[in-house]
């Protein structure tokens, strides 16, 4: 009991974890279809793309930046992987590696502009968001790309030992990002420059290099998300990923990462993603209309941040 209390009050992600449990309890009391192995697998599968995007952008936000181009990068990379795997022209692994490199390069473009011009990342990535959407339409000539490599389809819809492949990617991405943020020098410096950029620079941290890397990571995970999305719907869609950046950023913020930078966790982001996913899924199950779902979702995002603030204060007094 004592350990339990300590977990909820002492760990930074205790609050969102508690909220997630409460929401799950609420939905299971309302419908018996919620807490079933199948539904849990459905939820995880549904959130995998958002989770992968959110993990990547967590680094950017902790470093004090923002990446609004995520949705467009998903579209560009989704189109690229579709083009590369059309008509079996290249092998699947070549198509995937090529797409991941494209994602990293596009992320690097964001990073270079931010570092070299000192224009706020909000503006830079707002620009590249529009550019990216245009590039996706140019590459695809504005049409969906079909007739893709069959094994690509397997990535989106297949499973290994009964576990859907997107969920495996989710788990793998979580582990990689968590270790990267908490155990490596890079992760430490990401938090440092988000906490105080000038102090980090004076202390000898290569601030520009770290900033460039965080946008490259964001680009890499956007590419991975784009590949999974294209694989799932078996088509390269230039209009895919619209508004994905907002879902990802919402999950990061609900997960307790400060928008001012300097602190945050990958576990928090995962919980934020699950929180959004569970609410979407639960509202579907209890037949709330899709229009109302958006209204409720928006309210919950604001509420979550307000409650987290109160909860942090409360924690001080326990």
């Amino acid at each position: 009991m004592k350990e339990l209390k300590a977990f909820f009050t002492k760990t930074p992600t205790g609050g969102i974890f508690l909220a997630l449990i409460l929401v799950c309890a609420l939905f299971s009391s309302m419908t018996s279809r919620f807490l079933t192995p199948t539904n849990i697998s459905v939820i995880l599968n549904q959130v995998s793309v958002n989770a992968i995007l959110a993990f990547g952008v967590t680094f950017v936000i902790i470093a004090g930046g923002i990446d609004l181009s995520l949705g467009s990068l998903v579209a560009v990379c989704g189109v690229v992987v579709a083009l590369l795997s059309q008509n079996n022209e290249y092998s699947l692994s070549l198509a995937i590696i090529g797409t991941l490199i494209a994602g990293i390069a596009l992320g690097a473009l964001n990073g270079f502009i931010v570092v070299l011009t000192k224009v706020p990342p909000f503006i830079v990535t707002l620009g590249t968001m529009t550019i990216g959407r245009g590039v996706a339409l140019i590459l695809s000539k504005g049409r969906p790309i079909s007739d893709l490599n069959e094994s690509l389809n397997f990535l989106g819809n297949g499973d290994v030992f009964g576990i859907p492949i997107p969920i495996l990617f989710l788990v793998l991405s979580y582990a990689t990002c968590h270790i990267l943020l908490t155990k490596t020098i890079f992760g430490r410096y990401v938090k440092a420059i988000g906490g105080n950029e000038m102090a980090s620079y004076v202390a000898g941290v290569r601030v520009n290099r770290i900033k460039l890397y965080v946008y490259m990571i964001s680009g890499l995970f956007a590419a991975l998300a784009g590949i999974l999305l294209t694989a799932r719907i078996n088509t390269g869609q230039p209009n895919a990923g619209l508004g994905f950046e907002l879902d990802a950023i919402a999950a990061v913020i609900i997960g307790g990462t400060s928008t001012r930078g300097g602190k945050g966790t990958i576990t928090g982001t995962l919980l934020g993603v699950l929180f959004i996913g569970v609410i979407n899924n639960g509202l579907d199950l209890i037949n709330v209309s899709a229009y109302w779902q958006q209204v409720i979702m928006g309210g919950i995002i604001i509420l979550a941040v307000v409650l987290d603030g109160l909860y942090q204060k409360l924690k001080m007094n326990i």
Partner: peptide, 15 residues
């Protein structure tokens, strides 16, 4: 100088 959110150890080893 300081990274306010970080602890003593992390502030010392910075850079």
């Amino acid at each position: 100088g300081i990274i306010p959110e970080m602890n003593i150890t992390e502030n010392m080893s910075l850079g």
